[in-house]
Design a protein around this nucleic acid. Structure first.
Lengths: 155, 155
DNA sequence: ATGTCAGGTTCGTCAAGTGAACCCAGGAGT
DNA sequence: ACTCCTGGGTTCACTTGACGAACCTGACAT
């Protein structure tokens, strides 16, 4: 299939998939980020919307902040005391394609009806989806059209 | 940010992100699939390459087969006894963008050097990457350029 | 019949997730 | 000054899941 890389030959320990999962692969992490992409910023809102145990939410937010995916910023609503909220950083925003990929797969294979949520281009209103493309501009149809190569020779 | 959908208004219980994570969100599942995309098919190879406990691997493979993401197919190498191997189905192959998304993020933010693995277009050799595009063909630059809409009104 | 080996299952232990209860700081009301 | 409320947590007892080592099983090969 995709076996251009001799299968046992490359260093799994520095694999970016594993690395990313090490950061956002724990239970709830990606759901917290989903809510963040919907604009949720406050502890109590995450908790209410996700029905996540407080202790777990506390831990996940701390991890995401530690990783630089969320930032814990103080703010003050008028007439209220100072609070802080959790905002996506650029690093966090760049996880958007991951969420979209999960969503698209779910829409295709798990929906018992039409997709519950559709993404539209802000500018033109057309539906948005993820595509695999090469830099020459060709659409890449799937894993079989891809050849993985080790960037650095073993050494 | 992305708050075109009033934030508390849509039904999280049927969210495709949550659904997909329910299927492939357990520890190891996506790493098993990563190996499957590299052409790994046999129990012992998954186990050796991932250093995953056998009991966990057994459970994850069973789940993935149950979900129709992998198929457990018998095969017989010449002079050997019948064995079975785990092959990606179409449903499984369609998780490729998810893996690529995780990989790209890791390459950007976690690598302490160049990306450990690069994906090239089989046909032209150019590097491959994921893009968010609308059906009108515009590149979508990020979450801010996307407006989520509920597909079905409440009811 | 005996051994080997892929492909598992079982078991005791340890880490992680869970919900309920509790805590704490900062205003607001009195 | 003192009490109440509320957001944002922590603590605790319990259950679930991950872990590694040991063990089992059903072909075949000898």
């Amino acid at each position: 299939m995709l076996g251009g890389v001799s299968e046992a030959s490359w260093d799994r320990s520095r694999c970016s998939v594993a690395g990313t999962l090490g950061v956002v692969g724990e239970k709830w992490s990606l759901l917290v980020l989903r809510e963040a992409f919907f604009g949720v910023r406050r502890f109590a809102d995450f908790q209410r919307l996700l029905r996540i145990p407080k202790a777990v939410l506390s831990d996940r937010l701390a991890t995401l902040v530690e990783q630089g995916i969320l930032a814990r910023v103080p703010y003050q609503a008028e007439g209220e005391r100072q609070r802080h909220e959790y905002r996506l950083t650029t690093k966090g925003r760049d996880l958007y394609p991951t969420l979209v990929a999960l969503m698209q797969w779910g829409d295709t294979y798990l929906a018992d009806g039409p997709a519950p949520l559709e993404l539209r281009h802000q500018d033109c209103g057309a539906p948005v989806h993820l595509e695999l493309r090469c830099e020459a501009g060709h659409a890449v149809e799937g894993p079989r059209a891809v050849r993985p190569v080790r960037a650095t020779p073993v050494g």
